[in-house]
Amino acid sequence: MQIFPKSLNLLPLVAALGVAVGGGIATFVVVYYFSPRFLYVGYEPEQPVPYSHRLHAGQLGMDCRYCHANVERSFEAMVPPTQTCMGCHAQIRTESARLQPVRDSWTSGEPVEWVRIHNVPDHVFFDHSVHLSAGVGCATCHGRVDRMEVVAQAEPLSMSWCLDCHRDPEPYLRPTSRITDMDWTPEDATEAERTEMVALLDRATPPENCSGCHR
């Protein structure tokens, strides 16, 4: 007895092909589009003040720690308080409309409401000071901030990204005197710096167990 017409003989093949291709596309879509690398990288919110790292850190050559002063001492790098800006801007560009929110904050005592860019979920523990004293530079995790007019997230900050380094930190370490140096590459290392990097690598014990980061 023939229930299905003969023309349906190809159905299993087409269905199998469809599942394979459709599944492939679905996998691709999830892996590519739902990944932190796609979703998080490039986030550059509009800030209340058009503050430029390219001018301050790049052209003026200011060290990151002039403003992010806590970064070597605490787990948060922190955005600088208004007082830090007013140290210079009480005298420089005092009429500039772009700096109005900073001056308002100075007179009123209310903070400037900067929009946070880099943010790991609350269930992840991240500590800046540990990474800096271990010899990981700002540029490794934040990209060339000194060339950014507006800060954009450069790295995914995903679990696999953290682990890629924790499993093999060697290529990412640099001498601790170079952590805020944006141009530095391993080829620039002097003999003394190479010895220091070997010592740093010996000492580094980045956690790979879950409770190291999810505490």
Partner: peptide, 13 residues
């Protein structure tokens, strides 16, 4: 493409 700049907050699935 990955890494496109956007001022919208990231979508977290």
């Amino acid at each position: 493409c990955q890494g496109q700049h956007s001022s919208e907050p990231p979508i977290v699935p």
